[in-house]
Computed example of a mutant assay.
Amino acid sequence: MSLRDKLIVALDLPGVDDAEALTRRCGDAVSFYKIGLQLLPVGGMDLNERLRAAGKKVFLDFKLHDIPATVEKATRSIASRGGDLLTVHAEPAVMRAAVAGRGDDPDLKLLGVTVLTAYDDAMLTEMGYAFGTRDLVMRRVEQALDCGMDGVVASPLEAAEIRERFGGGFLIVTPGIRPAGADAGDQKRVATPGDALKAGSTHLVVGRPVNAAEDPAEAARDIIAEMEAV
C-alpha cells in the first residue's frame, strides 16, 4: 500500500458541491476520501459512486448503530452501491449483523468504531460506562476481531497497544491526526501522522488540516512527507 493510500481526507463539508470542489483542488495528491453523516442525506452515496468511478477510494464513515436486523439490511444496501471502508459501532450484535449484511463483497471492508476520539475518560463516566477509554477500546477490539470485522477505528494513542496485544493482519484507522504544530480542535486524543504510523495505524484520517487549508493539495503532500519521514 502506498503512503498516499494511507491518507484519508475527510469531506466534512456542507454539501456535495463543496466536497467535489475540494477533490478537484486536491487532484492527484489525494487518493482516498471520507464521506460521513454530514453528506449522507444530501447525495453522499452518489458522490461515493462518482469518486470510485474516477479511481478514488472511499471511506463511508456512517457509524451504523441500530437493532441487528436494521444494521444488516443497511449494510446490504450500502454494499450494493459500493465502497471501500464502512464503519459500524463496535457492539457485538451490531458487528455480527454488519458482517452478515456485507455478504461476500470482497471490496467493502468493515470497521468497528471503538471509542470516538472526541471522548475522554470523564465523558465516558458521564455516559455511564464502567470502563475508561483504554480498557473499553481493548475490549471492543477483541470483540471486533471475534465478530469477523476487518479492522477497527481507534485513536493513535491506543494503536501501539492494540498491535502489541492483537498482532497484525487487520486495519487500524485513526482519526484525530494533526500535523506537527496544528490545533487539536475538538479532538481529545490526537497524534501526528508520523507517530500514528509508528504506533501501527494503517490509515490516517485528516480533516481540517487539509479541507480548510488555503492549498489543500499542498497540505496533503506535506502530511505525506511527514509520513515518509518514518
Rank of each mutant, 00 (worst) to 15 (best):
S2M: 12
L3T: 07
R4E: 11
D5Y: 00
K6E: 15
I8H: 06
V9T: 02
A10D: 13
L11F: 10
D12I: 03
V16I: 15
D17Y: 14
A19K: 07
E20S: 03
A21G: 12
L22N: 08
L22Q: 02
L22T: 02
R24W: 11
C26R: 02
F32Q: 09
Y33L: 05
I35H: 02
G36I: 06
L37A: 10
L39T: 12
P41A: 02
G44I: 01
L47H: 01
N48K: 08
A53N: 13
K57A: 13
F59M: 06
L60Y: 02
F62L: 15
F62H: 15
F62Y: 14
D66I: 13
A69T: 03
K73V: 07
A74M: 14
T75V: 15
R76D: 06
S77P: 04
A79G: 12
S80D: 14
R81L: 08
G82Y: 01
G83A: 04
G83M: 02
L85H: 02
A90H: 01
A93V: 10
R96Y: 11
A97I: 12
A97G: 06
G101L: 11
G103F: 01
P106I: 11
P106E: 14
G112L: 06
G112K: 01
V113S: 01
L116Q: 10
L116P: 07
A118H: 11
D120N: 15
D120T: 12
D121F: 04
T125R: 14
E126P: 02
M127C: 12
G128T: 06
Y129L: 14
A130D: 13
A130H: 12
A130Y: 08
F131K: 11
G132T: 00
G132A: 06
T133N: 12
D135F: 05
D135E: 13
D135K: 11
M138A: 10
R140S: 11
D146C: 09
C147P: 03
C147F: 01
D150R: 00
G151K: 02
V152A: 05
V153R: 00
V153C: 03
A159V: 10
E161S: 05
I162G: 00
I162A: 04
E164T: 14
F166A: 09
G167M: 08
G169W: 02
L171H: 11
L171E: 15
P175S: 10
R178A: 00
G181S: 08
Q187L: 11
Q187T: 06
R189M: 14
A191P: 04
A191G: 10
T192V: 10
G194P: 06
G194L: 03
D195K: 09
A196I: 08
A196R: 08
L197C: 05
A199R: 08
G200K: 04
S201V: 02
H203C: 11
L204G: 09
L204W: 13
P209S: 01
A212H: 03
A212E: 07
D215H: 01
A219T: 08
A220C: 15
I224Q: 13
A225W: 05
A225V: 12
E226T: 01
M227W: 02
E228D: 14
V230W: 11
